[in-house]
Computed example of a mutant assay.
Amino acid sequence: MPLTSYVVELNQWNKTQTTCGANGMQAKLVSNSPSLYKPLCGFILLVAGSLTSPFTMADASCDTNLASRVGPRDYFDQKHHSTGRIDIVEKNHLTPEMLRLEKGNTSTISADLHYTLNVIPNHPAALDLASRLDKAMRSFPERYQQEVMQRSVSCYFKRAFLYTPSQPYLHYIFAIHLHRNQAYEQAAEAYARSQQFGFQNAEFSYKYGLTLFELKRYTEAREMVNLAM
């Protein structure tokens, strides 16, 4: 994906800007926190595909055009909730039965999920569901034989990060997905990014500790688990 003038709005920061680039690609960052330029710049270029990244697992045909008839809507932006549109999508296309991997609402789980992520690309529960459904389809093919993922899980995450790359909770959900698929090194990196962007609670510390344990980084793992207690 050519990235020549991609402007990243870092939440409510809007004071200074810088530009980063690699392999002929550029990203423009708007922030009042220069310490975040380097890690965020590197991550954006990873998402865009200019460097080796977890997103190289996604299909080359991953559609990164986020425009749709009713979207995109930002799950983390309160004004997008105030219109009621996100609630309508969740009520019809992200039901409790879907989250339990039981059944879809208007169609199959995968079809309703696809609609949700088309409208709300960074919906954390929907992204986590995509990860869990993908694994369930591989683990129990007969049970989920009617399900067809219209995009790869990596593609859904790629679209989410292109929309809100500095959203810490998004990095947290991505880390959980990576750990779920035994990509522990990449999961640790995603947890570290989430923490760097300001997210940490007891559950985060516990899950991060589990990943560090898998990597045999026992001292760090113990420190994380202690934070969770």
Rank of each mutant, 00 (worst) to 15 (best):
V89K: 06
N32C: 04
K158D: 03
L129V: 02
V119K: 02
F213R: 14
K158T: 02
P34N: 13
A188D: 15
Q150T: 05
V70S: 05
T16G: 08
N201T: 03
A60I: 06
Q17V: 02
L129G: 01
A58S: 14
L51Q: 09
E90L: 15
A22M: 09
S131P: 00
A60Q: 12
L162F: 10
P2D: 04
V7A: 09
L40H: 00
K38V: 13
Q17R: 15
A221K: 09
Q186M: 15
Q195T: 03
S53A: 12
S68G: 11
Y172V: 00
S194V: 04
H81I: 12
D128F: 00
G49I: 05
L133M: 00
T83G: 11
Y144P: 04
L51S: 11
K207M: 07
A228Y: 08
E185G: 04
P165S: 09
Q17S: 14
N181I: 10
T56V: 12
L210H: 14
C155Y: 06
Y144Q: 08
I176P: 01
L215C: 10
E142T: 13
N181R: 08
Q200R: 11
E185S: 10
T211F: 05
L127Q: 04
A188T: 08
L113E: 03
K135N: 02
W13H: 07
F204C: 14
V148F: 02
L51G: 01
S35T: 07
M229P: 00
I86L: 09
Q12V: 04
M149Y: 08
S33V: 13
Q145A: 10
Q186W: 13
D87S: 15
F43P: 01
P96A: 02
R159D: 02
L162I: 06
P96W: 05
A111M: 03
L210D: 14
A48T: 05
V70A: 02
M25W: 14
A48K: 06
V70R: 02
E220T: 00
E223A: 14
K158R: 15
T83K: 09
A160N: 05
Q145W: 01
P2S: 07
F161Q: 13
I109T: 03
L99R: 03
L3V: 07
S107N: 10
Q145I: 00
E90A: 10
G42I: 05
H179A: 15
A27Y: 12
I88D: 06
Q182V: 08
D59P: 06
T16E: 11
Y206V: 01
A175V: 03
D77V: 08
P34K: 13
M229V: 12
V70I: 11
R69E: 13
T56D: 13
P72M: 11
A27C: 15
Q145T: 12
A130K: 01
